[in-house]
Design a protein around this nucleic acid. Sequence first.
DNA 1: GCCAGGATCGTC
DNA 2: ACGATCCTGGCA
Length: 180
Amino acid sequence: MDIVSRDFYDRPTLVVARELLGCFLVCRKGRKVIRMKITEVEAYIGEDDLACHASKGKTKRTEVMYEKAGHAYVYLIYGMYHCMNIVTEARGFPAAILIRSGEIEGVPLKETNGPGKLCRFLGIDRSFNGWDVTKGKKLWIEPGEDVAEDRVKMGKRIGVDYAGPCKEYLWRFEIADHSK
DNA sequence: GCCAGGATCGTC
DNA sequence: ACGATCCTGGCA
């Protein structure tokens, strides 16, 4: 088992986001281990990013974003879905990458092609918040296929119309030819 | 305390 | 286009 280590996450968030494409998010669910290829991510970087939860500063909810790179940031959204992020960059600087979409062999795409849906399928909830994904055990990342530059599509982040100028940032990355 | 709004999704 | 559903942050 090959687990992505902390120095991978402890780099500029946009670089990490780009390189997470093609990697596998691996989760232990009961006695089974589920591997999901990551096909779409979004970066949320610093207190100046008005779309980032940390734009309101360090709070009980956002404190994990200020932690060392490689921790999971999981929150409840709209009262019924969870979103899974991985914290990046140096301790004290709040940044994270939202896992937006993935593919699991033998599983219909509609189960994993959204941030809320993939968490529901993998059984990721707020009990995973703060989990160190470099430790394995119940949630970690494995290296995956190399995704060539011409297959990477950048775009605006979804659902952040409230973020003023920051909503225009091209901080969303996806594998261009991944099936939707 | 109270209240508006949300990094979503399924249905209408 | 809208409702579900509950946590969060801001304000009193």
